[in-house]
Design a protein around this nucleic acid. Structure first.
Lengths: 343, 343
DNA sequence: ATCAAAATTTTACTCGCGTAAATTTTATTA
DNA sequence: TAATAAAATTTACGCGAGTAAAATTTTGAT
């Protein structure tokens, strides 16, 4: 049975009849030792359940086998889903992911970057707060730690960016909406927290111009990361004012749309594409909850798998390349339009 | 400026004119060194931005200043919110939280416990998967690491449990519903992932008996952590079959209710307490999204703050008490009924 | 059986810090 | 002002590994 009297690798090497350096080698790569040796070590491992002290292991390593994952806001299930996929890939590849959320707060994001630096991670996957981020803090961080940005791009920072192609999102949704009904207006926060929001507005304007349509941007008030509540309040307001320029609303993101839909429902405004409907609503992200809104939300979906896989692969290439890439790449994945009932 | 030539505490001590052990003491508790010493260290800190190597720090510590936080499913914003509050408290108290999600998978939960053990954390706050958890793995873990369970209780494991009082949740919702309309039936998964679900069913049955009402439990099929989809499918089924025993549905939890409401909407069943409504729906948890459902969801709310604060405080007492408490306590916090539009 | 190549072991260092015990400095009291 | 207690600091050693170089053993092909 596991008599856990083993206090260190020296003792474990003794009971398994192998020298300590060889045991050390085994723990770094079991296939790097002879088969018979490996079997003896594994036999001893069964009897004594010893695990190397991770702190001693990492003390002298320039880089550890840790990978930092930083997201801006964990109460958003979008990031929960991304994290799940990313963590899986990292573990497969023999890395140890550690997860952090800035919880929408700049100071917290900075603290995370700080403690991440002292963790000497092999690399970091960072989805920054965006507009709220302390740019110089992130810049300094990226100079010291091999970093791939994802979801939210900050010009020039990190060795690469992997995310979704906002233009693809918006052009698909705008084309679909204008093809099948009235011209969409664009519904967004006045001061969006996230750079994707700005790109989406620009893409909306560009697409409308290309189609020869007149654009309308509806800007609503509100700050912070409570997008649903902001969308709801904004929804009540524009519905009460009857200030919507068209009967078709394209929300900047799903969380805003979720709030907007709840305002529609409570205001008795029927949403959908049926003849009895007053409004069509569509959005972007394919948020995990968007299929459960009432009506279910027509949206442009992130390619979750492609984004997370590519982000991880890019980071691995970066790590193998010694922390630097020739030039900063931006990989953008197109959206897939998901037609549901809201538009 | 920060000439980061400082490679270790020795060198930093030199440039600040203080001995290394004193510097070490400073980093553990700045107030433990003389004011003049502190000022000299802090002056040097400004010039040289040195940070102690956390691995070297923790190598010889029996216990580190780390606190592990483990949740079963991070794509559920309920846990996102809990984590946010818990992390805040830990940081305030000078600990370093590290966050893990089992992502609904037993093997992953076990791996987390494994790597957590080798992190030698001062303590762990564990919200286990529940029914899917490997009980013996958790039991073994708790023997070695001071652990407080939260959200989901497993009989006898950990030094304490902190969570919500399911009986309070259900008795309030049942009493409210039966006082203001038809008797509620209880809508739940046939094989719930979480022990809270069982407690809620039992509480439902007990409350109905106390009120002299006939209970009806509606069990729907489905496994895993995709509760919304399960509630939706189950909803379509019971609505199609017209098998609901009453016009009032009390869902075991909000995520199930979110799915159920979407099924009602698509089936053209009007939910709410108005005269034109066919169904009332209520639930438990006050999930962050429950205010945005259509109609907004009447629910029994967790006392998020009380649960997270108490869990953290209990863990701190446990840590200060050397990892053991006299007897295992279970702290249950009552619910607060939140009346919205769905019932 | 022979011998080169591969794997393992030995030896001997290093790393960055914690910490008990000894020593010095500072503060307090008489 | 001197004696003494208290606090701060220094000395000296240990921790649990990584790792490089040299010596030795094992392996596998001939």
């Amino acid at each position: 049975m596991s008599q856990s009297e083993i206090r260190n690798m020296e003792e474990f090497a003794a009971v398994s009849g192998i020298s300590r350096p060889t045991v050390s080698k085994y723990f770094h790569d079991p296939s790097s030792v002879r088969k018979t040796t490996r079997m003896r070590i594994e036999a001893a491992l069964e009897k004594y359940d010893y695990r190397p002290n991770i702190y001693a292991i990492n003390q002298n390593r320039k880089l550890t086998k840790n990978i930092g994952i930083v997201v801006p806001y964990l109460a958003d299930p979008f990031f929960g889903e991304m994290v799940r996929m990313i963590e899986g890939r990292c573990i497969e590849a023999g890395y140890t992911p550690s997860l952090f959320s800035a919880h929408g707060d700049q100071a917290h994001e900075n603290d995370i970057l700080d403690s991440l630096r002292s963790m000497k991670p092999a690399g970091v996957l960072l989805a920054p707060l965006g507009r709220q981020s302390d740019k110089s803090a992130i810049e300094t961080f990226c100079k010291h730690v091999p970093t791939v940005l994802f979801d939210s791009n900050i010009e020039g920072m990190g060795e690469a960016f992997v995310g979704s192609d906002n233009h693809s999102f918006v052009s698909q949704s705008v084309e679909y909406l204008s093809r099948t009904g009235e011209t969409p207006c664009f519904f967004e926060m006045r001061t969006p927290a996230n750079p994707n929001a700005n790109k989406r507005r620009i893409a909306y304007l560009a697409t409308m111009e290309r189609l020869g349509l007149e654009p309308h941007v509806v800007k609503i008030d509100g700050t912070g990361w409570g997008f649903e509540e902001i969308g709801r309040k904004g929804g009540f307001q524009v519905l009460a004012e009857k200030s919507l320029p068209t009967n078709t609303v394209l929300c900047s993101n799903d969380r805003l749309a979720i709030g907007f839909l709840s305002a529609c429902y409570e205001s008795g405004v029927r949403v959908g594409r049926g003849p009895d409907c007053q409004l069509r609503v569509a959005s972007h992200d394919d948020h995990p909850f968007s299929r459960f809104t009432c009506p279910s939300l027509t949206t442009a979906a992130h390619d979750y798998t492609a984004v997370s896989d590519n982000a991880v692969e890019t980071l691995f290439r970066l790590i193998e390349g010694g922390g630097r890439l020739e030039n900063r790449t931006e990989s953008l994945f197109p959206a897939r339009l998901i037609m549901r009932d809201s538009a």
